[in-house]
Each structure stands twice: as C-alpha cells, then as structure tokens.
C-alpha cells in the first residue's frame, strides 16, 4: 500500500535501511550493503543498532560493501592477527582499554578509535548518507536516536553491552547498547523513505546435540535473545518494514567474530534474497 502511494506521489524511490544488533552475527550486514552497491542504489537513510550501527556508519562514511568486507576479513582472519593489530595501536598500555574498577571492563570509545577506519573518526555531519545510531538511556529506559556530534562515541554507546563494556555518557545521559530498547530499528526510519529494508541478525538458542538442558551461560544469552525477539515481535504488531531479511546466522554466538568466513557463507542466501526483493521493488516504482 505504501509502495502504491509512493509510486503515485513521487518520482524517486527512497530506500531506508535498518541494520539490527547482533554482535558477530552482524557481520552478515556487510553482504546486505554489497547488494546496494551491486544494484547501484544508495539508501536515503541508514539506521543501526549496535553492530548494525557500526556497519551502517562505515557505509555512510563512504566505504563500499566490498571494502568493508575486506577490512573485516583482515581484522578477524585470526586471533593472533587481531591482537597484533590491537597491540600496534595501543598507546598507554592496555589500561586505557581495561579497568577492573569500572562497570564493564572494556572502554568502547578507546576500542573503536583503535579498530575502526581512520575515516570514521568524523562527525555525523560529514557522512555521505544520513545515518542514525540507536542507543538506550539506562536510567530513563528509553530509546535515544543519535544523529549529531562525533560519530565514534555514538557508535560506542550504541554497542555498549552492559557489564562487558562501559556505558557511554553523552549529553548527561548514561547510554548502553541500543538493542535493549530497539534491536531492529526500522521504525525510526519508516517515515523517512518509500521503502524500508530491515535486516534482523538476532540469534536463536540452539539445542546442543544430546543435551537436555542449556548450560548456565547458554541460558543467559539464550534468554536475552528471546527478549530481543519479543521486543521485535511486539513492534511488528504496530508496523512492519517492507522488506524483512533474516540472514541464517542465528546459530553463531555473539563473540564468534573469528568465524567470519562461516558467517558470511551462511548469510549468502539472504543476500540473494534481498537482491531479488529489492530489485522487484525498484522495478515496481522505478
């Protein structure tokens, strides 16, 4: 219905892209961004939560999907390589990154400044595609959409997983991972384009072969995933995106960054799926 309306009123076709949170599973976003390159369309606006924010911001800065893939592959090819990269950039020792006295040991801002491409140390205003990062205000229990100021702190806030990474204080607000209020932020861009594409990389609890009950930590992450799903399910009752893609990466864990090749391989069918659906949509209104 929205498509028809868009068709009638406007000559262009504006596509909004929402990339969800899912830590290592979010590497699948790289393939979805490649689709846009391959079809030669540019999203009118990108919204991202957590890992979705990082990938979305990299694309908004001007990196192509292929470049992003190459960087991720280089970074996560193996652990030794990753640590070497990290150590090479580390000034002031590991204490800049870790502190046992803080809530959550890792300082995301420092980490991101070391790991993310130089070009991403910029301001929202410098981005080539309008971009929104979703974070959660810890005390107000509400969603905060970041679209101004320096990019890196916003990304750090959007992916500040409580108790693992430090909360980020921005503008007097204590911000944590946006996934806790909006794991799939398609709703914040629903009204800003004609077609909204949402990529959901939330994991699914998988039964270990032969196991009756999940292990303790498995149960903790599994139940968090259920909560993410419950939030998204309730949101879909209010309004749905036009294209919803769920790359088959549910079986991967949040910290499986070094399984990048397997993750990208598992997301390959979803890439084809998005490419097909998006080209259909473009043909419809184009």
């Amino acid at each position: 219905m929205r498509l028809a309306e868009a068709n009638a009123g406007k000559p262009g076709k504006r596509i909004a892209l929402a990339l969800g949170g899912g830590s290592a599973r979010g590497l699948a976003h790289v393939l979805m961004l490649e689709v846009f390159d391959e079809l030669g369309v540019k999203p009118a606006v990108i919204a991202g939560t957590s890992m979705g924010a990082i990938c979305g911001a990299a694309y908004a800065v001007g990196l192509s999907g292929a470049e992003l893939r190459a960087r991720c592959m280089a970074l996560f090819a193996n652990r030794a390589n990753f640590l070497k990269h990290l150590a090479g950039k580390l000034r002031g020792g590991f204490s800049a990154l870790w502190s046992a006295r803080m809530p959550g040991v890792v300082d995301n801002v420092t980490l991101f400044e070391m790991l993310l491409p130089e070009a991403m140390r910029c301001d929202f205003a410098a981005l080539k595609i309008p971009f929104l990062a979703v974070a959660a205000d810890f005390y107000a229990i509400e969603q905060v959409v970041l679209d101004k100021g320096p990019l890196i702190p916003a990304l750090a806030a959007s992916s500040a997983l409580p108790s693992l990474t430090r909360p980020v204080v921005l503008g007097g607000r204590t911000l944590i991972d946006g996934g806790f209020v909006n794991p799939l932020p398609y709703d914040v861009v629903l009204d800003r384009a004609d077609v909204t594409v949402a990529v959901d990389v939330t994991g699914l609890p998988r039964r270990r072969p032969g196991a009756q009950l999940p292990r303790t930590l498995e149960a903790v992450t599994g139940s968090t995933q259920i909560l993410f799903h419950s939030i998204t399910r309730e949101k879909l009752k209010v309004a749905a995106p036009h294209i919803l893609i769920r790359p088959g990466v549910g079986a991967f864990g949040a910290m499986d960054y070094f399984k990048i090749e397997a993750i990208l391989a598992a997301a390959e069918p979803a890439k084809d799926d998005l490419k097909y659906k998006l080209s259909q949509v473009l043909a419809e209104i184009g």
């Binding site: 229990i141 409580p162 108790s163 806790f180 909006n182 139940s223 968090t224 993410f228 939030i231």
Partner: peptide, 8 residues
C-alpha cells in the same frame, strides 16, 4: 538490562 528489555 533485562529489566529494560521487559519494560520495552
């Protein structure tokens, strides 16, 4: 954090 999600 789980409280925040439940509230959401």
């Amino acid at each position: 954090s789980s409280q925040i999600m439940q509230r959401t």
